[in-house]
């Protein structure tokens, strides 16, 4: 057992700042356990989100020693505890209180992306046929737990505050899952180019590095989407085609 100091972002608005808490750490504890222990022992007002405590719901996102992490999957024995451990809220979103941020923007962005639209069923009983090979890629994207750590780390949002014109890695993954779904018949490529602002992404792969679901966000979703944007909007042959067929799908 060791006594560890946690330097936690506490408060709201102008008054928010770091506050130090000491608590005992035992074998196997994760950062979220320490936060809960602090709530029970010394500060019942300390606010944080959490649910499953097993890396499956994506609620307890925070920045631990400056790294975007799920608190429930960050073991204390992976951190240097000789120095205070800092825990801060995700910085890419408006701060509410303590470790809680306003992530509602993510929900609004998703709502504007066209929903799944399947082709007609393949069989008379109303079902479809898809091979496992064809759904592997989509299943990778659907592992996303919407923790929004990829959004938090993305410099387009974090530093350049392009929220109104950039959907962010989470929604590129969501869009890729729809676009690559074997049954889907809609297109969201125009939306990604325009409202989604996918061109802002300069594939630094920061999002991939922090993804707790190990989705290869950049390689498997963003780059293929960028390629589709190019094919559809910048390919000279397609462009010519579009001039002569102005009413074709855009």
């Amino acid at each position: 057992m060791a006594n560890v100091t946690f330097r936690i972002w506490k408060g709201r608005g102008e008054e928010a700042g770091y506050k130090d808490y000491d608590t005992d750490i035992t074998e196997g504890m994760v950062v979220l356990d320490a936060v809960h222990q602090i709530q029970a022992e010394s500060d019942p007002t300390l606010a944080c989100r959490w649910n499953c405590k097993a890396g499956k719901c994506g609620s307890c996102s925070a920045e631990v020693n400056g790294q975007p992490k799920l608190m429930c999957m960050t073991r204390m024995d992976t951190l240097d505890t000789s120095e205070p451990v800092t825990i801060e809220p995700m910085r890419a979103f408006p701060h509410l209180r303590d470790l809680v941020t306003d992530v509602s923007w993510n929900y609004e962005v998703k709502k504007r992306i066209a929903p799944f639209k399947p082709r007609k069923p393949d069989a008379p009983d109303g079902t479809w046929r898809m091979s496992q090979d064809d759904v592997d890629r989509v299943q990778e994207f659907r592992r996303c737990i919407e923790c929004f750590l990829c959004q938090d780390v993305c410099h387009v949002l974090r530093e350049h505050h392009k929220h109104p014109e950039f959907a962010g890695p989470r929604h590129f993954v969501h869009t890729a899952a729809l676009e690559m779904h074997p049954l889907d018949t809609d297109s969201r490529i125009g939306h990604m180019k325009n409202e989604g602002g996918i061109g802002y992404c300069n594939i630094t792969k920061c999002c991939t590095k922090v993804c707790p679901a190990h989705i290869k966000i950049t390689d498997n979703s963003i780059i293929p989407l960028k390629e589709r944007v190019v094919d559809e909007f910048y390919d000279p042959l397609t462009k010519l085609f579009r001039i002569f067929r102005p009413k074709s799908r855009s």
């Binding site: 399947p118 079902t127 046929r129 759904v135």
Partner: peptide
């Protein structure tokens, strides 16, 4: 749920 976009694991002949 398949009509709403769910992607269950597949049998060899492509069913759920």
């Amino acid at each position: 749920l398949e009509a709403w976009g769910a992607v269950f694991d597949r049998t060899k002949d492509g069913r759920v």
